[in-house]
Design a binder for these strands. Structure first.
Lengths: 339, 339
DNA sequence: GTGAAAGCGCTAACAA
DNA sequence: TTGTTAGCGCTTTCAC
């Protein structure tokens, strides 16, 4: 099955290829006589002409596509984000190349390199670390990009994140209203903005409310994983710090905490309440029911895509960053056993 | 930051671009004098040369990429499949373009069209319907492709699916061993091979084992969704057919069945046992614990990628299809209340 | 074994 | 307003 080329359209319409090109691109359509333009467009339609994106890309160094860099698609957090991005980009003619880095810097670097060779016009990164040499370089070189979910420490890169501080406040407020006073925190990795922000907000909340806040009631987990959460919970239990509730840095850590509590035969939420963070898909099915802070994943992706389009549209404007609101989803938490 | 071109490498090495091209492509490297080849490669390395994939693609009509067409990435079934595909393709230099169709034929068609324009070398489809005009056409035109998870009725297209019949047998055998005799089936859509195969296997199993098999104990759901499963379960309960166990066509239908049972105040597995299919991620967290048939998602993807590479390697060979083995994951089911 | 020449399909100066 | 020309970076006949 032969695919019509611009040349063939031009020949059939009796014009030069350059004229046909102009007539078929909205930006240059105005340069050509309205009736010839119409004729060319009609012929193009009849012949089923569609421009060859590869030839176009070779010529223009553009590509109508962006690179999306995430840690791991099988983390249920990301599929809704990806859909949000694509649902915004597709209608305006953009595609996204997705790559999973599994948190490996070299994979990320070579992905960026490979995207560049393919003339991607911008990037969305969900892999930002607080200190991230590659991203800092790219920002310094004015590469169009948007961070999602996580940010850098030195951050004037446009980003879309959730309002984690407020989320933590909602969670703690909920626990306090239930009567908890001794609350612990399973913090996420401290080289990521999410881990740091939630931990800081946790500490601030304890202080402001006059709740016990010895250092021991925060345990830092070394990954956002169920296993790390299980280990963290063990450490917390063995530390001797008294607590009746735990705020986990995210749902996976919370699930790990569940595992440890079950293994130790500690009833939940009877003896210890656990609150998660993210409300990732299918969290509503777990048992015991888990209260968690809901992040609008799909919207996070959609807003990131809009922001990137804005950046691509006019790189001169000052980069905006967005903080999306969170809500608390109350499912299972109860007051402390002693109350 | 300037990126070296083949021309620049050739100039620096004192050869013609054509020679440099030959020296830098493993397939043509043999055509050039070994020492000049080595010199060219050294220069290329020093200059950090990497071939421009777009220029190459324009010239060769190839692209080192394939198109992957799935219904919806947010269905937890698919992320592991996608990772399996990518983990096999990446090491051999291939990339995958992913598109979500949301089961819309026109979206699928335009995705295929757009992939073709980008010179994808093959396709993986996870969207096959039993009768699927587009796929039949493409197969007739010898388009390199592999089906995953689902197949066509008229199937000599290479495919990688799970051995659903055996899976159903495992599930029913398990229920029978627990003492169940009255078993019902929430079947999936009957325009998909998975829905049909599991339903047929269910009926055959009942017959062979001499279990009650009136028509009423199979309810066909109109989608693989929780909502459809909930509706199906309602219909089953209201039909008056006696049953103590239900085999759901997949986990989402099973979760829907849970919802209906909970809404009706029917204890599970006390009064009615539910068995799922797929063991999708995080199924081990649901409550009540669900016994389900595990499909090796990641391997499904990996095998599909290998099969596609085989097809791309030598299109003349007879298309193979793979049936991957399933296992039963026993979590919660119990014998019937009456037993 | 190497070079010359052509061209994949398109767009963007420049000229008319 | 339209046509001419050139070239994005690469590969591949064909000639030597």
């Amino acid at each position: 099955m032969h695919r019509a080329t611009l040349r063939e359209v031009a020949d059939k319409a009796g014009v030069h290829p350059a004229t046909a090109s102009r007539a078929l691109n909205s930006a240059t359509e105005g340069m050509v006589n309205a009736t010839t333009a119409a004729r060319i467009q009609k012929v193009a339609k009849e012949m089923g002409y569609t421009p060859n994106p590869i030839a176009r890309s070779l010529k223009t160094s553009r590509s109508s596509s962006i690179g999306l860099i995430i840690p791991d698609l099988t983390n249920p957090l990301f599929p809704p984000i990806v859909r949000g991005i694509e649902d915004v980009l597709r209608p305006v003619g953009y595609n996204a190349w997705i790559v999973n880095t599994d948190n490996q810097q070299d994979v990320e670097a070579s992905a960026v390199e490979s995207f560049r060779q393919r003339n991607v016009e911008g990037f969305v990164f969900a892999t930002a670390h607080l200190h991230h040499a590659l991203l800092e370089e790219m920002a310094a070189a004015s590469t169009p990009m948007v961070l999602i979910n996580r940010r850098l420490a030195s951050a004037d890169i446009p980003s879309v994140t959730s309002d984690d501080s407020t989320g933590v406040t909602l969670a703690i407020q909920h626990l306090v209203e239930l009567g908890h006073r001794n609350i612990a925190h399973l913090a996420g990795p401290q080289d990521l903005s999410t881990g740091v922000t939630r931990r800081r907000a946790f500490r601030e909340n304890l202080e402001e409310r006059g709740l016990p806040d010895e250092a021991g009631r925060i345990v830092v987990c070394d990954a956002w994983s169920e296993e790390a959460g299980a280990r963290g919970m063990l450490q917390l239990l063995d530390s001797g710090v008294p607590f009746t509730a735990v705020l986990a840095g995210n749902d996976l850590l919370a699930l790990g905490a569940y595992d440890t509590l079950a293994a130790r035969g500690i009833s939940c939420p009877g003896e210890i309440s656990v609150i998660g963070f993210n409300d990732m898909p299918y969290m509503d099915k777990v048992y015991p029911p888990m209260t968690t802070v809901r992040i609008p994943h799909y919207e996070l992706g959609a807003e990131a895509a809009r922001l990137l389009l804005e950046v691509l549209d006019g790189p001169e404007r000052h980069p905006r960053s967005l903080l999306l609101p969170l809500t608390l989803v109350v499912r299972g938490s109860t007051g402390p056993a002693a109350a």
